[in-house]
Computed example of a mutant assay.
Amino acid sequence: MKRTLFAAFIGGLLLFIVQFLSWGLLNLHQPAQQYTSRQDSILNFLQQQQLPAGGYLMPNVPENASMQEYDQMLLAAEGKPWVSIQYHHRNNSRMGLNMARGLATNILTVGLLCWILGRWRRPQFRSYFMAALFTGTIVFLNAPYTYHIWYQSFDLYAHLFDALAGWALCGVWLGWYLPGVQQKSTRPDWTAEASTMNID
């Protein structure tokens, strides 16, 4: 158990390092968070609108709009600019806390994968590496890419890098470490034992 937790910790740390490089030093997500010299006037205008905190998609229709009104809006908006806004009343910069939560989430995610891998009867580097790489592919397709289909995010390839590079690195670690741990395990193989029993 302790060795599995250790595997999850190191795997989560590797994911965190890749994410840190992607969002920080390499700045691959910059296309989705660009600077504009008009930011002050835009923020002041939005503040004057007294919007409730939340996400806004424009153009859009009210929640109680009919399907006909929705179709008319889509027709009128075709080929014109549109915008998605995440509006918050206060900027709370909690870098340390957010980084700790991100690391904890990564460790938990890798721990769940370790739980699955721990049930495999034939631990092999290649199988564990591919399982981790497929996990990264699932993570990418299920969230960033599905979101991109509808809202055309500007940092799609950065998310692809995060998923494949991070989980491939994690897969190398798990493929090297976990098989050795499982082979040293003293847990009895009840299936093998039952097959050797003579039941009259």
Rank of each mutant, 00 (worst) to 15 (best):
P144R: 12
L156I: 15
P123K: 09
Y128F: 15
F140L: 10
G136T: 09
P144C: 14
W150H: 13
T135D: 01
Y145T: 07
R126E: 05
F154N: 06
F154E: 09
N142H: 15
S127I: 07
H148E: 07
M130L: 13
T135M: 13
M130V: 09
Y145L: 11
L141E: 07
V139H: 14
W150K: 10
W150S: 11
A131I: 03
P144I: 12
L133Y: 00
Y128H: 04
L141N: 07
Y157K: 10
L141D: 06
I138A: 15
Y145I: 08
Y157I: 09
M130N: 07
W150A: 11
F154K: 07
H148P: 00
L133R: 01
W150E: 07
N142M: 15
A131W: 01
H148I: 01
G136A: 05
I149P: 01
W150P: 00
T137V: 14
Y147N: 06
P144Q: 11
A131T: 10
A131D: 04
A143V: 15
G136D: 00
I138M: 14
A132D: 03
L156V: 09
T135Q: 10
D155K: 04
N142T: 13
Y147E: 14
I138E: 06
D155I: 01
R126I: 09
M130D: 05
T135Y: 12
L156M: 11
A143W: 10
L156P: 02
Y147K: 09
M130G: 06
Q152A: 11
Y128P: 02
Y151D: 08
V139D: 10
A131V: 01
I138N: 09
F134I: 13
D155M: 07
Y145G: 02
I138K: 09
L141I: 11
F129V: 05
D155R: 04
T135C: 13
Y151G: 07
Y151W: 15
V139P: 05
H148W: 13
Q152V: 11
G136I: 03
T135V: 12
S153E: 07
P123Y: 04
F140W: 02
Q124P: 08
Y157S: 12
P144D: 14
T146M: 15
P123V: 11
I149E: 08
G136E: 06
A143G: 12
L141A: 13
Y157F: 12
G136H: 08
T135H: 01
T146W: 10
L156K: 09
W150F: 14
L156D: 10
F140T: 05
T137N: 09
Y147A: 12
H148C: 03
F140P: 00
V139R: 11
G136P: 01
W150C: 01
A132R: 07
Y128S: 03
F134Q: 10
Y147R: 06
Y145N: 03
F125Q: 06
A131R: 05
Y151C: 04
D155P: 02
T146S: 11
H148M: 01
M130A: 11
F134C: 14
P123E: 03
